[in-house]
Amino acid sequence: MLSEDDVRRIARLARIELAAAEVHGLRAELNGILGLIDQMRAVDTSGVEPMSHPQPLSQRLREDRVAETDQRERFQAVAPQVEDGLYLVPRVIE
C-alpha cells in the first residue's frame, strides 16, 4: 500500500505537480490499481523468459548515414519559445 509520502515521491519522479488536496484521493486510486496488479505477483514464473516484444525479431540496422533533411524551422514553429534556432527554457545555471 502506498502512503501519501509515496504518492508525493512518485509524482516528483514523474515531474507532475500535485496540489496538497489531490494527494489523499490519488493515493486511494493508485492503491486500487496496485491491488489489481498484485493479483499477478503470486504466480510462479520461475524459468519463464520475459517477453519484451510481441514479435521475435531482432532490430534492423541501417547504414550510419544522414537520412534526415534539415527541417528545423518547420519543427521549431510549434515550440513554445525559440530564439536563433534554439529552444528557450528557464535559466538553469546562474
Binding site: 502506498l2 509515496d6 504518492v7 512518485i10 509524482a11 519522479l13 514523474a14 507532475i16 490519488l26 486510486e29 493508485l30 490499481i33 496496485l34 496488479i37
Partner: peptide
C-alpha cells in the same frame, strides 16, 4: 496522470 504515476512506480 494516474497511468504515468503507476508506470513511474
Amino acid at each position: 496522470k494516474r497511468r504515468i504515476m503507476i508506470g513511474a512506480y
